[in-house]
């Protein structure tokens, strides 16, 4: 697209800042993620990870700075416009349609891009991929936490985004469920870029990727998993606080 040899990043945050009254949740963050990349975002509670996602998806307007998606400035876009450009999000608190069945949930998402029989086929494919076939006609509100997380993941995947943001996808999951989620991410990353916020160190090692560490709204370090996880500063702010 751009004339230079440096590939254009998929998404790029420039000098991004978000203030809530007196609280600065995100301060001058520069971050870019390439097409197809898997990035982990870690940091203690309140570091600003969820707020960062909210800015990328148009839920809040950045106080300063800009967000470029494939070179287009998307600050101030409506959330549904951003979704249509190709950014999907699984939020920290699951957002699903509790009063509808699993199949109906997926149908809503599938019919964004499909019509008629193709919608049904897309739903069937997703039910199979997420192994939700046996509960397809249950109301989502009645399902266990882990299952609801996967359904939300299904809603995101069916819109076929170029970038998926996952905010603590394994939170509250059992060991087995966590392993399965990590495997799913392995499959998903073959078709799109991901930014994953997670606390669970084991989980992060499982999906092993480049890591960005947030601390009090700023980027502390960025690098490959091994280097970052053994970095003393990271241990101090992150692991130290977690244990407390």
């Amino acid at each position: 697209m751009s004339g230079s040899n440096v590939p254009q990043p998929l998404i790029e945050a420039r000098n991004l800042t978000m203030r809530f009254g007196g609280v600065t949740a995100i301060a001058n963050v520069d971050l870019s993620v390439a097409e197809g990349e898997l990035r982990c975002l870690i940091g203690p509670n309140g570091a600003g990870k969820s707020t960062f996602f909210k800015m990328l998806t148009g839920q809040v307007m950045p106080s300063e700075g800009e967000i470029l998606f494939r070179g287009t400035r998307i600050n101030g876009f409506e959330p549904h416009d951003i979704a249509r450009l190709g950014i999907g999000i699984k939020t920290q608190v699951p957002n699903v349609f509790d009063g509808l069945t699993v199949r109906e949930n997926l149908w809503i998402a599938a019919s964004r891009r499909n019509r008629g029989k193709a919608t049904e086929r897309a739903v069937a494919r997703e039910l199979e991929r997420l192994e939700l076939g046996s509960i397809a006609d249950r109301l989502v509100g009645q399902l266990a936490h882990g299952q609801r997380q996967w359904i939300e993941l299904g809603l995101v995947l069916l819109t076929e985004p170029a970038l998926i943001l996952l905010d603590e996808p394994a939170a509250g999951m059992t060991e087995d469920e966590t392993v399965r989620t990590a495997k799913l991410i392995g499959i998903i990353k073959q078709s799109c870029a991901l930014i994953v916020v997670e606390h669970d160190m084991k989980f992060i090692r499982m999906i092993a990727s480049r890591i960005t560490v947030f601390d009090r709204g700023r980027i502390l370090v960025e690098g490959e998993a091994d280097a970052v996880l053994s970095d003393q500063r990271v241990r101090d702010v992150y692991l130290g606080k977690r244990a407390a």
């Binding site: 409506e78 549904h80 957002n95 349609f97 509790d98 809503i108 964004r112």
Partner: peptide, 21 residues
């Protein structure tokens, strides 16, 4: 009609999917 009902259930998710609620 189904999207209208989905908005009742969760307006945010409807927008994340890409429908103008």
């Amino acid at each position: 009609g189904r999207v209208a009902v989905a908005i009742r259930e969760n307006e945010k998710r409807v927008e994340f999917i890409g429908y103008d609620s």
